[in-house]
């Protein structure tokens, strides 16, 4: 671990640093040990951290615009429905509970599909799928990409350059066509879809966080901390991480919308997991119903998943927009008082 770290910073070339500066930046064994001791001794530091994070989230929500607040309540509503799906529905989503293609009525509030399955149930359980994929992909690629960016930005050198090239390549790839191709070749399982999405979306948070780390490591208080003997672990944990987390959070929101759309798109094209009950699959089945537009069925079969999807994406977009505004340093400094 130590060797890897030293190796990384020994090859710092990105910022025209020269040899002695590199030497000064080189985290020595002692500093890392000191870091470790610090973490061991200050175990409750993490709890403080959490409190600070919660506080800042609370602060941020206070600064949301009305549309942002709407977004949050909408998202909470969907999350609620997804979690308590068994309690807000009357039928299993895949149970044949009525006649096929029943219009909305007291028995089935949103009617049934061609197999006689309850549409409301499918919407509620489908929310689980959309949220799961959205959040899981966003968490993995946001945190993972953020971590990579942080390391590369702080350590610099070859790691940084390698990461930067990989980011460029990943971002240059036409993501949706690639998604279709990959999904078509792999088994259409949820896991595969998620892996493909992660692969295509980690680059953006990595890039954002890397540039943040790069800018911050020149800050005088970080130089001071380093002169006081702080190792990289301490500096990242204490100084850089708290500044980078909001950016990662915004990324997570954006990626989750992207992942939800992408999953629905794949499912719509028939590349999703056929056994899953996601909104995309509902759209897929509805649109595959021959001449659905000549029947009134589209009104209760096609529209609900579409509206649900649009509603979820709108909520995420509203939240994301406000978050971006809040973590933007220029606007934040004014709003910080």
């Amino acid at each position: 671990m130590v060797e890897a770290v030293c190796g990384a910073c020994c090859q710092e070339k990105e910022d025209s640093f020269k040899a002695p500066q590199r030497a000064a930046m080189m985290p020595d064994l002692r500093a890392i040990k000191a870091d470790w001791n610090f973490i061991m001794k200050n175990g409750d530091g993490w709890r403080d951290h959490l409190a600070v994070a919660l506080n800042s989230i609370q602060d941020s929500i206070g600064r949301f615009s009305p549309s942002g607040k709407m977004g949050i309540s909408g998202l909470l509503l969907i999350v609620f429905i997804a979690i308590f799906a068994p309690f807000v529905t009357f039928y299993e989503p895949s149970a044949i509970s009525g006649m096929s293609l029943e219009p909305p009525g007291p028995e089935h509030i949103l009617g049934t599909d061609e197999l006689g399955m309850d549409i409301w149930s499918q919407i509620c359980y489908g929310a689980r799928m959309s949220l799961l994929i959205g959040l899981a992909v966003a968490m993995i690629s946001g945190l993972g990409g953020g971590f990579l960016g942080l390391m590369a930005g702080y350590m610099g050198g070859n790691w940084d350059r390698a990461l930067l090239r990989t980011i460029d390549i990943t971002m240059a790839l036409p993501s949706f066509p690639l998604l279709i191709v990959i999904a078509a070749f792999l088994n259409p399982s949820i896991l595969n879809v998620m892996l493909v999405l992660v692969f295509l979306s980690w680059a953006k948070p990595a890039r954002v966080v890397r540039s943040q780390a790069l800018a911050m490591k020149k800050q005088q208080y970080i130089i001071s901390a380093r002169l006081h003997g702080a190792g990289p672990v301490y500096i990242i944990r204490r100084h850089i991480m708290p500044e980078a987390l909001p950016l990662i959070f915004v990324s997570i929101l954006n990626i989750s919308s992207y992942a939800i759309v992408a999953e629905s798109g794949l499912a719509f094209l028939g590349l999703g997991d056929p056994t899953s009950k996601s909104w995309g699959m509902m759209l897929h089945y509805a649109t595959s119903f021959r001449s659905i537009y000549f029947t009134p069925y589209w009104q209760w079969w096609l529209m609900p998943p579409l509206i649900a999807l649009i509603f979820l994406l709108l909520c995420l977009a509203f939240i994301g927009r406000d978050m971006e505004r809040i973590v933007d340093p220029r606007l934040r400094s004014r709003g910080g008082q």
């Binding site: 610090f38 208080y221 901390a225 006081h228 702080a230």
Partner: peptide, 11 residues
């Protein structure tokens, strides 16, 4: 925290 930091770092 800012003033205490050097002491924290060096234990």
């Amino acid at each position: 925290d800012a003033v205490k930091e050097p002491l924290d770092i060096n234990g």
